[in-house]
């Protein structure tokens, strides 16, 4: 594990219901600054729900969430302000179809953060350059491939200068040949020290990028370990069963 200087995100006893059904049963969890955590778990176990709770897209029933030491889940802090520090990229292509690539990227920094246009434009250009899409900045999302759209979505989140990035299966609806280009971008981000919380079904990627694997099943954290340990000798039978499903892939 990296030097664990400081806890950036902390979750205590988080519970989440949909209707009468409890989906998350009291999650305790934390991420250190600069750490890359990959969440694994079978479909429907609550990974997406958990990420959505972290940036206030879902209300939680009990427990607390702290960012940088201060509570963000008590209703006093405004979520729209907190979300500027928590970048999120979803599985579905979620660019705004009526805006060009650059307009998509500038919307948050200009309207939510009220930053200066030329400063943000410069940063956006640098980020686009890094993901190899600077020449597409005036295109509309419909003109891009799935992989390109997801790279733009990542840039859009990064341009807010977030403290932490949440990724929810961002390669799950991509054609196989495009998965790589998106994972490469995420890998580079990880190497540059971005704090990241990643939900993915790409096991090789998880193994190579993660500082820590968190395995969730049926709304509980079942196992937490370093990737080598998790993939070679999982401590729980549930994690073992989960890994068996993927063993044909590699």
């Amino acid at each position: 594990m990296k030097e664990t200087e400081k806890i950036l995100l902390e979750v205590h006893k988080l519970k989440k219901n949909y209707g009468n059904k409890e989906i998350l049963h009291g999650i305790d969890f934390s991420v250190h600054r600069g750490e890359v955590v990959v969440l694994l778990g079978p479909s429907g176990c609550g990974k997406s729900t958990f990420l959505r709770c972290l940036n206030g897209l879902e209300e939680i029933q009990s427990g607390s969430i702290l960012l940088d030491g201060s509570i963000i889940s008590d209703g006093k802090a405004e979520w729209y302000a907190i979300r500027q520090k928590i970048g999120m990229v979803f599985q579905s292509y979620d660019l705004f179809p009526h805006m060009t690539v650059i307009e998509n990227i500038l919307l948050g920094p200009l309207k939510a953060q009220k930053r200066k246009k030329n400063e943000v434009e410069k940063q956006a250009a640098e980020l686009l350059e890094r993901v190899g899409l600077l020449d597409r900045k005036d295109d509309y999302p419909a003109q891009l491939s799935g992989g390109q759209k997801q790279r733009v979505a990542i840039v859009r989140a990064l341009c807010m200068n977030p403290e932490i990035m949440l990724f929810d299966e961002v390669t799950a609806s991509l054609d196989p040949e495009m998965v790589r280009e998106v994972l490469d971008v995420m890998k580079e981000l990880a190497q540059q020290g971005m704090t990241m919380l990643i939900v993915t079904h790409e096991m090789n990627f998880a193994r190579s990028v993660a500082d820590r694997i968190v395995f969730i099943d049926e709304g509980c954290i079942v196992e937490e370990s370093e990737p080598e340990q998790f993939f070679t000798a999982p401590q729980t039978e549930r994690a073992q069963r989960f890994l068996d499903i993927f063993s044909y892939e590699n």
Binding site: G56, D94, L107, Q113
Partner: peptide, 13 residues
């Protein structure tokens, strides 16, 4: 998810 993407970049409702 259009609405959620908007919220996710920090816009108000």
């Amino acid at each position: 998810h259009q609405r959620e993407s908007g919220l996710a970049v920090g816009l108000t409702r």
